[in-house]
Write a protein that binds this DNA or RNA. Structure first.
Lengths: 235, 235
DNA sequence: ACAAAAGTGTTGTAACTACACCCATGT
DNA sequence: ACATGGGTGTAGTTACAACACTTTTGT
């Protein structure tokens, strides 16, 4: 499976090849706003700009493995699930040469962040107060958000941003932050319960907070939601 | 923007690089069944097997441009729109070396096919009677179909498989072929008209067919469908 | 005591599903 | 004449959106 010739100048191929990287748009939630995890670039190009964690594909890994590895190296995070949402391949998107990026997004409980591991600064930013981003990462974020909004109806991803037990208002705030619109409390709760993906848990609540019923996510019922919700109805 | 060193052995890079290709899953419709366009491989590997049209990325084109160019070269087709649906990057998916494929799908009116241009045999196959496929193209097809089923609710792609004017039963057969289920004629028509994306056209019909009202696609109303249908309702 | 957040139920409306008969064409 | 496919409407049911007051907690 060796397709190159090793020369003193490096790995040689018959035709030119683009470099492949992965980038990961990591969403978090602080109870109010949707957050995005960024890394400050230490070197050129775009030195000092903020960018999504990511890096070059190794020859012994898939793009999924690459995204996971790079994220872990740069932030310490190991998300349960990463969703691929697009390939960015404009010929001039990276001044260093022809670089093609496969992009992923993931949702992470904010608490999990080991604040800036070995790598440079890693920080959460509210999605509505982002610094200038490197490369075409602004486009990337836009597409990641679009993918997230699309997927939240079909995949049980939203719950990854919350603790095991959560209150309805918390869940609702999360949905409102992601979808960017407001919902009616009563209707929201009705639909969530009707879909069966959340179930009532104990009625207790730790001190220091307002009270509130606790709910938990029921993965077993997610398949139904999938069908229920993807209009398998009748056309 | 030159990131390689040209040697007598070819284009040399500091680190090994995967080759990047695009493949296109082309769907057609014969009025009854969903069809897939395949190309018979003339060379190794998988000689004699059938595969999706596609090929290697050039350095001066995006993956979208590459998919379009390769499709045109191999089949003469120039679809209006191609949808990217995934990247395939298993390390051993191509015996020739490390090859990463960005996959697209497109819908094409069957009539448009210029039956096997310069390239090898290109043939339509009913989706339920496919020959053995090369590489990981069976997985690819599965994902393409899943993407198509997902997208047909949100994007006006289904109409690309029909003539400008079509009858409701034709449209319904198309949806049934794609989604793999049967619908009630009256309800199907009601929903289609209610969504506003189809409008009644003349009542005439060419001879040699059964009669039937003709409809046409109304792209202007598609945005509404998008919102209407992506549950922008209330949660 | 007051402000802020959380809990709860009902009702009108719109959308969906299920269903049966007639008509036109082609054989 | 018969079989096939196409056209059309209604009624029962369910899902949805809109809406206001009470209770608890924290200040």
């Amino acid at each position: 499976m060796q397709d190159y010739i090793k020369t003193d100048k490096g790995y040689a191929y018959e035709y030119p090849r683009a470099a492949v990287t992965t980038d990961s748009v990591i969403f978090g939630f602080d109870g109010q706003e949707l957050l995005v995890l960024l890394i400050k670039r230490g070197g050129e190009p775009y030195k000092g700009c903020w960018a999504f964690p990511g890096g070059f594909l190794n020859m012994d890994e898939t793009v999924e493995e690459c995204a996971f590895r790079e994220l872990k190296e740069e932030t310490g995070l190991e998300p349960d699930q990463m969703e691929q949402f697009g390939v960015f391949s404009a010929v001039d998107r990276d001044p260093r040469g022809r670089v093609l990026t496969v992009s992923f997004y993931a949702l992470i409980k904010k608490e999990q962040v080991s604040g800036g591991d070995d790598a440079a600064d890693a920080r959460w930013f509210p999605i509505n107060a982002l610094p200038p981003l490197a490369f075409d990462h602004s486009d990337m974020l836009r597409e990641a958000l679009a993918a997230l909004k699309r997927d939240i109806y079909h995949k049980p991803i939203g719950f990854m941003l919350l603790d095991e037990h959560f209150t309805m208002p918390q869940l609702q705030r999360l949905y409102e932050a992601i979808l960017g619109e407001q919902f009616d409390r009563r209707n929201f709760q009705k639909k969530m319960l009707a879909s069966g993906v959340v179930e009532e848990q104990g009625v207790e609540r730790a001190m220091g907070h307002r009270p509130g019923k606790l709910f938990s996510f029921v993965p077993e019922n997610y398949d139904q939601m999938k069908e229920h919700d993807s209009r398998a109805k009748e056309f």
